[in-house]
Design a protein around this nucleic acid. Structure first.
Ligand code: ZN
Ligand code: ZN
Ligand code: ZN
Ligand code: ZN
Lengths: 133, 133
DNA sequence: TTACATAGTGTTATATTATAACAAAATAAA
DNA sequence: TTTATTTTGTTATAATATAACACTATGTAA
């Protein structure tokens, strides 16, 4: 019997949340996601946060820590989010994921003076985007 | 008349909050600071958050975004916090500020491909500290 | 198939983090 | 002094996130 390969391993709630985040033009907050999916039967915060946690874990989305908001991963290298960098416009709140091999390489191989070996980093740049400056 | 130079321009609440953060061994959360200073007459969250905001603004402390917690600045170069980097142990929660001229220079002069000019960045590394690995 | 384990769901309640708004007091500058 | 600015104290509330528990769906292996 031919073995079915499961292409899409997302659950219903995970897919709903991912769809919304991917369609959004900017970072979304958990409760704004919640309000947007209440018509689809998702009624309570834990359902959103569980989906968000899973999507982060598998690298489909990232959390912008300085904004408590979530964006879809736009970088195909990002299977697991262990090396993330973002540019954030302080005026219009536009957020872009930075996919720069040399930056990522530089930081991934960075060793600090205290003998700590890093597994993961998150970098957030702030400034004004083209449109806002 | 000789002009008095004000050496220490912190207000009472700002100084109380800074003292606690500087004495702490690790990052402190806003409400844990609040509970610790209630004996000193500070009773409500806004008093803490205002002090924190001011201390961040003048570079005396930094916020660890991934932990919603605050640490004292240990880097004398950090008058204004526009270039911050931290190492965070995922096991014991130890946080160290990274003061590395070359890292800071590399990131401060980083230009992204979308024509955005950055004014500020925050970098958080995660891993296991010496003790925990 | 059955049995078992794992992952996901729905729900209620609550914990944690942060800000709005406004009047009063302290401090700095003119 | 007068005036402006900053800081404080206070109450209330907003925004973000998790605990706990019963239940359902799905995957794995005997
Ligand atoms: Zn990504
Ligand atoms: Zn902008
Ligand atoms: Zn610093
Ligand atoms: Zn450690």
């Amino acid at each position: 019997m031919t073995r079915m390969l499961k292409e899409n391993n997302l659950s219903k709630n995970q897919q709903i949340v991912l769809d919304i985040i991917e369609k959004a033009k900017g970072p979304l907050k958990a409760y704004s996601i919640l309000f947007n999916v209440q018509k689809k039967g998702i009624k309570a915060p834990p359902q959103i946060y569980r989906a968000l946690d899973k999507l982060i874990e598998i690298g489909k989305i990232h959390k912008i820590e300085s904004k408590n908001a979530f964006v879809a991963c736009r970088s195909s290298n990002c299977e697991i989010s262990k090396a993330t960098a973002f540019s954030i416009c302080e005026s219009c709140e536009k957020v872009d994921e930075i996919s720069d091999k040399s930056l990522s390489k530089y930081l991934s191989s960075y060793n600090d003076k205290k003998g700590m070996k890093f597994k993961k980093f998150n970098l957030e740049f702030f400034g004004l985007c083209k449109k806002c400056k």
